[in-house]
């Protein structure tokens, strides 16, 4: 059963992270670890891909790694 410590992989949660600071795909995946969301790896990848397609964040390279970010 869900508890208050559960992490929800939602568009709103992703938006809040990307407004705060640029993040790589790995940074985002760390925020929504399967053991915290209860989703499978495949579900996590699919849901996060759909959310990022909708949000269509800006991209920039930092230390040769592609980062996503949003402005308010």
């Amino acid at each position: 059963t869900p508890s208050s410590s559960d992490v929800l992989l939602t568009e709103d949660a992703v938006r809040r992270y990307l407004i705060r600071k640029p993040m790589t795909t790995k940074d985002l995946l760390k925020k929504f670890q399967t053991k915290r969301t209860g989703l499978s790896s495949e579900q996590t990848v699919n849901v996060l891909a759909q959310i990022l397609k909708r949000l269509n964040p800006e991209r920039k390279n930092i230390n040769d790694k592609m980062h996503f970010y949003l402005t308010e």
């Binding site: 795909t25 995946l29 990848v45 891909a49 397609k53």
Partner: peptide, 20 residues
């Protein structure tokens, strides 16, 4: 594990590259 995280990141980037 770290390699699982790498695989997930690669899968996610592959999905996004088709779009972006």
């Amino acid at each position: 594990s770290n390699s699982e995280a790498d695989e997930m990141a690669a899968a996610l980037e592959a999905e996004l590259n088709d779009f972006m």
